[in-house]
C-alpha cells in the first residue's frame, strides 16, 4: 500500500505538467458545477421561504362564540398538516384593517357595527407542499359547520406552484446536463493523461507487472487529482461567494431568507463525485490498455 502511494506521488511529480492541466480542468469544472449547485440550493430555499409565508384564513360564522372558536383552533392544531392556528376576533380584524388603510379610516367611520367575523389564521406545516395540498386543507376547513368562508389566495397559490414546479424541473434538467457534460470533460481529461502514458504502461506490462501493479497507482492518482481539483474549485467558489456577499443586503430578498454557502453535506458530495469522475475516466482507459 505504501509502495503504491509512493509510486503515485512520484508520478505526480514526474508528470507535473499533465497533472497540472488536469488539476486546472477539474477545478474549473467543479467550480462551475458547484456555482450552479449554490444557485439551485439558495433558489430552492428562497422558494421554500416564500411558501412558508402562505396563510389560510377561515372566517367563522357570526353565531360562533369565542370559546367555540378557540376549541376549533385547538382541534385544528392537532392536524399533521397544520403548524399553528391563531384566533383573530372581529375587533382585532377591524383594528388591523384600520392600520392597513392608514389615513383613510374615514371610510370605516360610518359603520354602525363591526362587519368582520371572527377568523382563524392557519399556518400550514412546512411539509405541506403543492397547490393541491392547500386546496385539500382549505376544502376540509370549508366543510366545517363553524366556518363560513375560507380564503387563501387560491389563484395566486396555483400560479406560484406553477412557477415553482417549472423552476424545479428546469433546474433538475439543467443540473443533469451540466453534471453529464462536466463528467464527460473530467473523465476525458483523465483519459488524455493516461493516453500520454500508454507506452509506459505497455512497457511496464511487458516486463511482467500484473494488473494491480499497473492500475492501482493510476486509480489512486486519478482520485487524488479529482479530490485536489474539487478542493481548489470549492475554495475558488467560496472566495467568490465571500466577495459577492457584502453586495447583497441582509434580508434583501425576503426578511426570513439569508443566502448561504453550500452545506457540508453538499461539499462532501462534490468531493466524492469529483473523485468518482477521476476513477471512472481512469477505469475506462486502463481497461482498454489491459486488454490483449
Amino acid at each position: 500500500m505504501m509502495d503504491m502511494f509512493r509510486r503515485a506521488a512520484a508520478d505526480f511529480v514526474r508528470h507535473r505538467f499533465l497533472h497540472g492541466t488536469c488539476f486546472l480542468t477539474v477545478s474549473l469544472a467543479v467550480f462551475i458545477v458547484s456555482a450552479f449547485g449554490l444557485f439551485l440550493v439558495n433558489a430552492g430555499e428562497l422558494m421554500d421561504a416564500w411558501q412558508q409565508g402562505v396563510r389560510i384564513t377561515a372566517y367563522l360564522k357570526s353565531d360562533i362564540s369565542g370559546q367555540q372558536a378557540l376549541a376549533l383552533a385547538g382541534e385544528l392544531e392537532q392536524k399533521p398538516e397544520v403548524a399553528s392556528v391563531s384566533h383573530v376576533s372581529g375587533e382585532e380584524g377591524l383594528l388591523w384593517l384600520k392600520e392597513q388603510i392608514g389615513g383613510q379610516t374615514d371610510l370605516l367611520a360610518d359603520l354602525s357595527e363591526n362587519p368582520l367575523p371572527d377568523a382563524l389564521e392557519i399556518r400550514p406545516n412546512r411539509g405541506l407542499s403543492g397547490a393541491d395540498a392547500f386546496d385539500a386543507l382549505a376544502k376540509g376547513l370549508a366543510a366545517r359547520a363553524e366556518v363560513a368562508d375560507v380564503e387563501y389566495g387560491r389563484n395566486w397559490l396555483h400560479r406560484f406552484y406553477g412557477v415553482y414546479n417549472l423552476f424545479r424541473m428546469t433546474a433538475a434538467v439543467m443540473a443533469a446536463l451540466v453534471i453529464v457534460a462536466i463528467m464527460f470533460i473530467g473523465a476525458n481529461t483523465f483519459r488524455l493523461i493516461l493516453y500520454s502514458r500508454q507506452e509506459e504502461i505497455e512497457i511496464t506490462r511487458i516486463i511482467g507487472a500484473d494488473e494491480a501493479f499497473v492500475k492501482y497507482p493510476l486509480y489512486l492518482e486519478s482520485m487524488l487529482l479529482g479530490f485536489c481539483g474539487a478542493v481548489a474549485g470549492l475554495a475558488l467558489l467560496y472566495a467568490a461567494f465571500l466577495s459577492v456577499m457584502p453586495q447583497v443586503p441582509p434580508g434583501g430578498l425576503l426578511p426570513v431568507f439569508q443566502v448561504r454557502f453550500l452545506s457540508p453535506g453538499w461539499i462532501f458530495m462534490i468531493l466524492m463525485a469529483s473523485m468518482f469522475v477521476g476513477w471512472v475516466g481512469c477505469w475506462f482507459t486502463v481497461r482498454r490498455f489491459l486488454r490483449i
Partner: peptide
C-alpha cells in the same frame, strides 16, 4: 489474462527500439 504476468516474468524481452521509460 491473470497468468500473463507470470509468463512474462520468465521471459526477458529486448526490442530494437529499446522501449526504455
Amino acid at each position: 489474462r491473470r497468468q500473463i504476468p507470470v509468463l512474462r516474468r520468465k521471459i526477458g524481452v529486448i526490442f530494437q527500439d529499446f522501449k526504455l521509460i
